[in-house]
């Protein structure tokens, strides 16, 4: 993928997530005390307020929870139409992403998808999703 979309600038908190994407592993935070999965990354567990969270690996498989086909992009860098979706991972956490590799009109709620790591430049890899 060679579009010129704006890319993330990882922070100290989010770097393990983006490093994982580069290495081909989808990671999510997990509370050391109550085991809750936490995304987006936080310094405190929203379930039990524990402040020790570890990074754990996700299987990268899930389904489309909701989606929209975008026809007017936020910036010209995005080629339309494209699909923005909330992915519900099989472990029970949610991630915003794009569904690629199929006709936008074929996307539907409940569609099973898997992560498709996509290199954007020398450092950033995005976790996009494609139909299984």
């Amino acid at each position: 993928m060679t579009d010129s979309r704006p890319l993330p600038t990882p922070t100290e908190l989010s770097a393990p997530f983006w490093d994982g994407c580069r290495q081909g592993v989808l990671r999510v935070q997990q509370c050391r005390r109550c085991q809750a999965l936490v995304f987006v990354p936080r310094p405190m567990c929203p379930t039990c307020q524990h402040t020790s969270l570890d990074w754990t690996d996700s299987g990268g498989k899930g389904s489309v929870y909701s989606f929209t086909v975008v026809h007017r992009p936020p910036r010209p860098a995005f080629a339309v139409p494209f699909v923005v979706a909330i992915i519900e991972l099989d472990e029970g956490w949610y991630l915003l992403s794009n569904v690629i590799g199929c006709d936008p009109d074929a996307v539907h709620i409940g569609m099973t998808v898997e992560v498709a790591f996509t290199d954007m430049d020398e450092t950033i890899t995005l976790p996009l999703f494609r139909p299984v």
Partner: peptide, 12 residues
């Protein structure tokens, strides 16, 4: 960082 790169805007 978890929104902009996927082309999200308020309509989306």
């Amino acid at each position: 960082e978890f929104v902009e790169c996927f082309g999200l805007h308020t309509p989306g």
